[in-house]
Structures are given as structure tokens and as C-alpha cells.
């Protein structure tokens, strides 16, 4: 069985404010894998995902995602690239004043032409895909509710449905359960893993709890100070190793408590991506 590579990184480096915050020598993910990224705060988990999404540019090296070689400058290609990679965030990042259904439909925007989306024209296929995605996360009875009126667990399920509506190949989940209580966290993780199986998605998720990583991933990536410390199957990650990875909490002096500061300050969209001016797309 020859495995198809969906992510290939070779000597990639991400710099911010003159400091290297991510440096990956070699990293590959093949289709269908389930990778968990662990590491203490500020170790570069979010940065790695944002780089794969194309939000932060890498200085040098080779990055290939689904056959697209970075940097992707063509806006059309960028759009397809975004569609390939669904992303789920710690704080769900839904549009609170829109309904569950509308939020799931947002996953289709990459496929719908501007004119059609302005006039709210949905194709039969879009409707079907949204309905299926909502069905997967068991939210049929809450479709018409405003997203902000849902509980955290329900909001994260909407976010999963939105990602599914994108028909992605890769699903990135940045601390998908960090804002949920432990029992709910397991529910969401079960759901996440089961939809990835059902849709044949490659899953990459960052998790704060090594136990969750061991339970739900078949491969674990441990990061520290922007470097990959360890990469192997989840059974082979010993407790000693975990202690070593987490030993020097925050030694780089920047403790990014909930992981929001970095992503907020990095927001310069929409002209931020390679300096394209408004209106893009």
C-alpha cells in the first residue's frame, strides 16, 4: 500500500518580529493519519497549523500541502487550498448572530460564486451537504437557533459541521476541547474522530492533555520552542518522555495562556496575505 502524502515539510522556518518561532526540519503526514500535537504553551502548535493554512508565511524551506507548493500567490489557488483544509478553533469562532444552519453554510462559501451568495442562492447540492453535515453532529433540532445561544459543546459541533461542509481533505483542530469541561471534551473528541473516519479525513489536532492525545491519535508530535522534539506512534510515547517534553514550562519567557494573543496580533487580513489589497477574491 503506497501512502499518499498530504503534507510535506522540509526545513521550513517561520519568523515573527525577527525571532524564529517555528523551525521544522522534516515532517510528513499521509492521508488518513490522525496526528496529535502536544507541547507546552508557546511551543509553536498554533503557528504550525497557521502556516499550513497559509496565514503565516514561511521564510524558507519547502512546504507542500495537497500538491500545492508554498507560497501560494494565486488567489484562486489559495481558495482551493483553504477549501482543502478545514479548521476548528479553541473558541469555535462562529458568527454568533447567524443561525446554526447559516454557520454551516459558511463552509460552502468557497464553492459558491459571490453573486449567488449575495442573493442567497443555494444549490440543491449545497443544501444536501449542509443537511448531512448537521446530521453528522446531531444538531438537526437546533438548526434555526442563533449560534451564540448554544452551549460551548454545541458550538464546537457547529464548527465541526462547518468544516465538513467544506468537503476538506485535511482537518486541523487547534485545541478543539480546551474550553470545554472534561466529560464534554471526550464527547467532542469521539465525534471528531468518528467524522474523520466517516469522511476519510486526515486529522491534525493540538491538544493540551497528553492522555487525550494518546487515546485519540495514532501518531503524536511533541513540540518545544518551535521545534519538533518527538514524532512517533502514540503507544511508543512513554510517560518519562512526556515529562521531559513538559519539563521546562515557558522557558522561552512567553507564556501564551490561552493561545489567543498570538493569533489576534497576527491578524492583518485581508490584505495581510502577501499584501493583496481589498477587495480580493
Amino acid at each position: 500500500m503506497s501512502k499518499e502524502l498530504v503534507i510535506q515539510i522540509e526545513n521550513a522556518r517561520v519568523e515573527m518580529e525577527g525571532r524564529t518561532i517555528l523551525s521544522v526540519e522534516h515532517f510528513e503526514v499521509s492521508r488518513g493519519e490522525r496526528v496529535a500535537i502536544i507541547g507546552n504553551s508557546g511551543s509553536g502548535k498554533t503557528t504550525l497549523m497557521r502556516m499550513l493554512k497559509g496565514y503565516v508565511p514561511c521564510k524558507e524551506g519547502k512546504v507542500v500541502v495537497m500538491g500545492d507548493v508554498f507560497p501560494i500567490t494565486d488567489p484562486k489557488k489559495m481558495k482551493t487550498h483553504h477549501r482543502h483544509i478545514g479548521m476548528i478553533h479553541q473558541h469555535f469562532d462562529l458568527i454568533g448572530r447567524e443561525t446554526v444552519w447559516q454557520n454551516v453554510y459558511h463552509g460552502r462559501l468557497g464553492y459558491v460564486s459571490l453573486l449567488k451568495s449575495v442573493f442567497g442562492v443555494c444549490s440543491e447540492r449545497d443544501l444536501q451537504i449542509c443537511a448531512q453535515a448537521i446530521h453528522e453532529v446531531h444538531l438537526e433540532d437546533k438548526q434555526r437557533r442563533f449560534a451564540r445561544t448554544l452551549s460551548g459543546g454545541e458550538q464546537q459541533r457547529v464548527a465541526i459541521a462547518r468544516a465538513l461542509a467544506q468537503e476538506p481533505t485535511i482537518l486541523l483542530a487547534d485545541e478543539p476541547v480546551s474550553s470545554l469541561d472534561p466529560a464534554l471534551a471526550e464527547d467532542i473528541m469521539d465525534l471528531l474522530v468518528s467524522v474523520c473516519d466517516a469522511y476519510d479525513l486526515t486529522l491534525m489536532m493540538s491538544l493540551h492533555l497528553p492522555e487525550l492525545a494518546r487515546k485519540y491519535a495514532d501518531r503524536i508530535l511533541a513540540m518545544k520552542n518551535g521545534k519538533i522534539m518527538w514524532d512517533g506512534s502514540s503507544d511508543s510515547l512513554s510517560n518519562d518522555r512526556i515529562c521531559e517534553i513538559y519539563e521546562f514550562m515557558g522557558t522561552n519567557g512567553v507564556v501564551n495562556g490561552n493561545g489567543t494573543r498570538a493569533s489576534r496580533s497576527a491578524f492583518t487580513w485581508p490584505y495581510g496575505w502577501q499584501g493583496q489589497p481589498l477587495p480580493g477574491g
Binding site: K53, Y55, K79, T80, H82, R83, I85, G86, M87, H89, H91, D93, L94, I95, G96, R97, E98, Q102, H106, G107, R108, L109, G110, Y111, V112, L114, S117, V118, A159, R162, A163, A165, Q166, T260, S263, R264, F267, W269, P270, L278, P279, G280, G281
Partner: peptide, 26 residues
């Protein structure tokens, strides 16, 4: 809050679509 807008961008939505479906409702 820019993060929901960034999430919309991440679905492949174009700038005007993000304005329509993300910014305006907010």
C-alpha cells in the same frame, strides 16, 4: 472580534463574502 472572520476566510470565502456573512451580521 477578527477571529470568526479569519475562520470564514479559512473556509475559502472571498473578502466580499466575508463582509456579507461575517462582518455585517456581527
Amino acid at each position: 472580534d477578527p477571529k470568526p472572520l479569519l475562520a470564514l476566510q479559512g473556509t475559502g470565502a472571498s473578502s466580499l463574502q466575508i463582509i456579507q456573512h461575517g462582518l455585517i451580521p456581527q
